[in-house]
Computed example of a mutant assay.
Amino acid sequence: METERNETDRRRKRSQLLLKQAFEELMREKGFTAMTIQNITDRADVHRGTFYAHFPDKFALLEHSIRDKFHTVLGREMPPDTDWDPDHLRVLVRTVLEHVRLLYGRCSPVDTFNPLFERSIRDELAALLKHWFEQLRADQADWAVHVDTMALMTSWAIFGAAVQWSKSNENISVDEMTDRVLAVLAEGAGRIA
Rank of each mutant, 00 (worst) to 15 (best):
S120P: 00
F113L: 06
R101P: 10
F55P: 01
W84H: 13
D81R: 09
L61Y: 06
F70N: 07
G105R: 02
L103G: 10
P86K: 04
R48K: 10
T33R: 09
H47E: 15
A22E: 11
P115I: 03
L18E: 12
E29F: 00
V73A: 15
T112F: 00
L18H: 14
R14V: 09
N39P: 10
N39I: 12
T72W: 07
A126G: 08
L92N: 08
H54K: 03
L125T: 00
N114Y: 14
C107D: 15
F117C: 01
E29S: 08
T41I: 12
R106V: 06
N114P: 02
I121F: 01
H88C: 12
T36S: 13
T82A: 15
E63L: 01
H88G: 04
L102Q: 10
H64P: 06
D81Y: 08
T50M: 04
R90Q: 10
H47K: 11
L18V: 02
L125H: 08
Q16A: 11
A44E: 09
I121D: 00
E25N: 06
A126Q: 02
L26V: 03
G75H: 03
R94L: 13
I121E: 00
S65L: 07
H47G: 13
I37R: 01
A22Q: 05
Y52F: 07
I66F: 05
P109M: 03
I121T: 09
T36R: 11
D111G: 03
L61G: 03
V73D: 10
D57W: 00
T33K: 12
S65Q: 09
R11E: 15
V46E: 07
G49V: 09
L125G: 03
F55C: 08
R101A: 07
T36W: 04
R122V: 15
R12G: 11
L19N: 14
L116M: 05
K69G: 10
V46N: 06
L17D: 14
T41N: 11
L61E: 08
M35Q: 06
V93Y: 08
D57C: 09
V96K: 05
D85S: 14
E124P: 00
G49I: 05
E77F: 11
V73Y: 07
T36I: 03
Q21V: 13
D123V: 02
M27V: 10
C107N: 15
G105D: 10
E29P: 00
E118K: 01
D87R: 14
V73H: 05
A34Q: 02
D111T: 11
V91E: 14
S120H: 01
N114L: 08
A34N: 07
L89T: 07
K30E: 01
I40G: 11
G75Q: 00
A22L: 05
A126I: 09
W84S: 04
P80T: 11
N39G: 13
P56H: 13
F70V: 05
D83A: 15
R76M: 14
V93E: 07
Y104D: 13
R12H: 10
R67N: 07
D57N: 08
M35Y: 01
L125P: 02
A44I: 01
D57Y: 02
N114R: 10
D68Y: 08
L97R: 04
S108G: 13
Q16E: 14
